[in-house]
Design a protein around this nucleic acid. Sequence first.
DNA 1: ATCGCGATTGAACAAGTGTTTAGTGTATGA
DNA 2: TCATACACTAAACACTTGTTCAATCGCGAT
Lengths: 225, 225
Amino acid sequence: MRLTAEDLTTRARIRDAAIGLFGRDGFGPATVRAVASAAGVSPGLVIHHFGSKAGLREACDQHVLAQTASQGKEKTDPATTRQLIQDYLNHPDQYADEIAYIRRSLGDESEAGDAFFDAVVRQTQDVIEAGIAAGTIREFDDVRSTAVVVASNSLSMLMLGRHLSRALGADVIEPHGIGPELLRQLTVPALDIYTNGFYADSRFLDAARDALQQDTNNQGREHAP
Amino acid sequence: MRLTAEDLTTRARIRDAAIGLFGRDGFGPATVRAVASAAGVSPGLVIHHFGSKAGLREACDQHVLAQTASQGKEKTDPATTRQLIQDYLNHPDQYADEIAYIRRSLGDESEAGDAFFDAVVRQTQDVIEAGIAAGTIREFDDVRSTAVVVASNSLSMLMLGRHLSRALGADVIEPHGIGPELLRQLTVPALDIYTNGFYADSRFLDAARDALQQDTNNQGREHAP
DNA sequence: ATCGCGATTGAACAAGTGTTTAGTGTATGA
DNA sequence: TCATACACTAAACACTTGTTCAATCGCGAT
């Protein structure tokens, strides 16, 4: 259950307003005055509570990170995955602010973004290893790199959500880009590739292996003049 | 061949400096003064040539878009793809500025970013359809959506390059994140998934199809209270 | 009742922003 | 030769930014 704004302490109200504005406008463009106004408070009070704009952002980082770390610890089996999908489809804008905030953190280089990305990769790797053990996921030569690729692919929806909706000609542009309409159109094609592959045979894979092998031989001179 | 800074007209020098700074620092943080300084010129001259900072950005958008549209029209068959990979591996920082700039454009909502994303999707779809005709790529129920997914996955490397290098423990942090070291580690795992799939069977795909089918039935009430 | 202390505000400040303006050269064409 | 146009600069302007400061407000403890 989400607390309404009136139930929160002023400090928390400011922080939540900041999370919303930081996520929507970015850390630079979102001004202290705008945050204060959104929280129904004076700009000075924002500084009084958080010391500086950087301090405010730090508090937002910690809060969002803690918020997202608490959930998403137990999604390993297909049943729970389906549960999560349906849950998100029914409450689309429940985590909208956090999602937008994380997107900004991943784009704008920051420790919070690093931590979040690492957490996603770690969790992805756990899921893969559990899936391999359970026989639901293939075995890979390099599980770590595979986890990074899969995590990157997943997060691309977060980073490019706006473009995805646009490219699919969404009737309504969803608040932060990623929404039910989007998932409904992209989940099956994505899982289709993950299930049946994309290429018809291993020609591309072999070609890439050749190219990289050949490159490894010339590894001495990185930057050719 | 790339022209050196001295050979360019002042206007072009300013524009190139702006592309570099916009890509490195972002459109907001990169100041007119910084651009002017990087181009060895006074701030007023920047405005004199481009009317405003927005006009400067527009010129940069057009230039980068034209630059990237000229290349990347003929990469359809595996041989050319390998050629491109090797070419990029040998000249890593040739297009570094453009890559960083495009990354910013895709993140910061802008017409240029939209145009670039659409171009990538369109090109991806062309490649897929050509591949299907040639028998190198599987057939899909929804080619358009598949193209969007593949394009999104590809661009994730661009958007998250910094995190990818970090997560893979790159010895040296590449200038804009994506570089030879990164490609060498991620190309094969990525193509492995695209070739042999990720899941061991179609259980996840079926589960997702069920969930979405079930959701389509309840489509009337979007936001459950 | 009053003291004290944190929450809160409104106004101000210093720094940085994009932009303007007046002025200086410096070519080129009449 | 001169005048016009253009590239270019230095300084200033108007504005926004984050932050500070003095002054209240409200409330619990003494």
